[in-house]
């Protein structure tokens, strides 16, 4: 993993230099049809994420984070409101390979090897690329997420955390402008999780991708994100956005920064509040 370490450039401080909006949700609502009865899952969601930002989305389980992510990925349509990615509809953006998604459960193809799993989406998206090139890109990204040596293994032969990392590699292989990651490190041990977090920072600072990261871990959200959107339930809306004052680049020192502890405490407080609202 260390071999791929790039020269770190500080990312533009989001507060001073408002980046053009890359992901936007305006008055978005989602209703699910539960056999005749409709359940409102998301209501009145307003969200603007600047180009090149790394943003975290936190909230109680079942509040609708994955649903919001699927909206941005163009995998479903909102019942009301408008979603835009790079100034176009998410469906169009996805078709242009601008969006890479890693789901909460890895959703790999069980008959393909890790390498082929990382490759097949790009293969499908861009038939003009040669097979060799697609595989080379997939291999690079598999190595990047620490899976060198596991290329030939099938999903049933990988651990849960390894499968998640194959899914991340699959998203990265598309080389999208937008990365939508749904609890990508949920099944990892603490050390690997930190390594993957650092890796994500590296990739983000090197490529200036816009990243939307759903996570349940406070420390992960605070360590990685420039903005943290906190969702509440019943039905879910964004109850608060915390703008981080932690500078980039961030490293092991960041954890010892007093601002880190303050942000984490603030986040905890908000989530406790939103949990109370849920019950």
């Amino acid at each position: 993993m260390a071999s791929a370490r790039p020269v770190l450039r500080p990312a533009p401080a989001p507060a001073e230099q408002p980046a053009p909006v890359h992901l936007s949700a305006e008055g978005v609502a989602v209703d699910f049809d539960l056999g005749g009865r409709t359940q409102r899952v998301l209501t009145d969601i307003h969200l603007k994420i600047g180009k090149g930002q790394l943003v975290a989305l936190v909230g109680p389980s079942g509040c609708g984070k994955s649903t919001l992510l699927r909206l941005f990925a163009g995998l479903m349509k909102p019942s009301a409101g408008k979603i835009e990615v790079a100034g176009m509809s998410p469906v169009e953006a996805a078709r242009q390979k601008r969006i890479g998604v890693a789901f909460q459960d890895a959703t790999l193809l069980p008959w393909k090897t890790a390498l082929d799993n990382a490759a097949f989406l790009l293969e499908t998206a861009d038939p003009s690329l040669s097979r060799a090139e697609v595989r080379a890109r997939a291999e690079t990204n598999l190595h990047l997420v620490g899976l060198a040596g596991a290329e030939g293994k099938r999903p049933s032969q990988l651990s849960g955390g390894m499968r998640q990392r194959v899914a991340i590699a699959r998203a990265l292989t598309l080389d999208p402008e937008v990365l939508l990651l749904d609890e990508p490190f949920g099944a990892l041990d603490a050390i690997t999780r930190e390594e993957m977090g650092t890796l994500l920072l590296d990739i983000w600072q090197r490529t200036q991708k816009t990243v939307l990261l759903v996570t349940h871990a406070f420390d992960e959200a605070v360590f990685l994100a420039s903005d943290i959107h906190v969702m509440g339930t019943g039905p879910a809306r964004i109850i608060e956005t915390i703008a981080s004052d932690l500078p980039y680049p961030r490293d092991a020192q960041t954890y010892r920064d007093p601002r880190f502890a303050a942000l984490e405490a603030r986040l905890r407080e908000l989530l406790v509040k939103s949990h109370k609202g849920a019950t």
């Binding site: 995998l75 078709r95 390979k97 969006i99 789901f103 989406l121 499908t124 998206a125």
Partner: peptide, 11 residues
Amino acid sequence: SLVSLMRSVGA
């Protein structure tokens, strides 16, 4: 999810 992912990249 897999089907919509494939569809989303134009399959």
